[in-house]
């Protein structure tokens, strides 16, 4: 549906975006790959030569690697389970006739717009602080001993904070998906004698399958690189060091660039595995 003229114009107009993104991808990626094969300690001697796959082996065999993988999986998995289940329930609830529906919607999605550093700090201090936090006051009011949230229950606390941030996202997308369900289809199911549970499991849930997949995949990508929430709450202490945080520490805190870069390459590979699945789903949409 086009002519030579518009095609060559199109190529020209694509160029800036394509070149910028290509540069943004290739330059740092090449550098990361380059550093990952070197012993490179900027503050302790700089470039100390090629070391082959040494960094890759050391990164995986370091004592903090497997705990970091486990922490990452627990956080990503925990947040996904909580946000998807609560998200579906909340979306179903918000889809019902309610007085003041608009306002409730606004209240529910608000946390998504709170910047990660604010939500991390607010939860850490105003709610989870064992002396002055809201929960501590609450626990004392019922005569219980306040919980040392971020040190004794560090992972559940982080999962709670992150779920609070992402629940609105899941709810909003699932609600949009529910509302796009043809009401005639629901009415037809009702005419066919399906009860509320039948309608949910045979009509609504299958309709939501695609939206749930999208939520899971997109959240996974964002959750794998969660950073600020950990940075301002535990700074990686108390077993909250994720893969992302571990690499960050290797690179910027201990300035072991070679080792950190090898970790970075692992992270990129991991993210790409998830990305392939997401792209399949999004790509299907392009064909329509």
């Amino acid at each position: 549906m086009a002519t030579q003229h518009s095609r060559s114009a199109a190529r020209m107009m694509m160029a800036p975006a394509t070149i910028l993104l290509l540069g943004w991808m290739l330059v740092p990626l090449t550098m990361t790959l380059y550093f990952s094969f070197k012993k490179y300690l900027p503050l302790r001697g700089g470039d100390l030569g090629w070391v082959g796959f040494d960094n890759y082996v050391r990164f995986v065999s370091s004592s903090s690697f497997w705990p970091a993988v486990a922490t990452t999986l627990v956080i990503v998995g925990g947040v996904l389970i909580i946000t998807v289940i609560l998200g579906v329930l909340l979306a179903l609830l918000l889809d019902q006739p309610i007085w003041g529906q608009g306002v409730v919607r606004i209240l529910v999605i608000a946390p998504f717009f709170v910047m990660p550093t604010v939500s991390g700090l607010v939860w850490k201090n105003m709610f989870m602080d064992p002396v002055n936090g809201f929960f501590a006051h609450l626990w004392r009011a019922v005569g219980a001993e306040p919980i040392q949230w971020l040190s004794q229950a560090s992972l559940p606390s982080l999962i709670m904070i992150i779920s609070w941030q992402w629940l609105p996202f899941a709810t909003l997308i699932l609600l949009t998906a529910i509302q796009s369900l043809d009401s005639e289809q629901r009415e037809a199911a009702e005419m066919d004698g399906a009860g509320p549970i039948g309608r949910f499991s045979f009509i609504i849930l299958p309709h939501l399958a695609r939206a749930i997949t999208v939520v899971v995949l997109i959240q996974t990508i964002f959750l794998l690189s969660i950073f600020a929430e950990i940075f301002v709450t535990t700074a990686g202490a108390f077993g909250t060091k994720t893969l992302t945080y571990l690499i960050f520490q290797r690179v910027l805190e201990s300035q072991n660039v070679g080792l950190g870069s090898a970790g970075g390459v692992y992270a990129i590979i991991l993210a790409n595995i998830v990305a392939i699945f997401l792209m399949r789903v999004v790509g299907k949409n392009l064909d329509r």
């Binding site: 993104l21 740092p28 550098m31 690499i247 690179v251 992270a267 790509g283």
Partner: peptide, 22 residues
Amino acid sequence: LMWMLSTKMLPAVGVLYPIYLL
């Protein structure tokens, strides 16, 4: 389009040092 989307999925931490250095 897909490729552009994939650049969005590049984990930032993987390219932290190069960008920092640049």
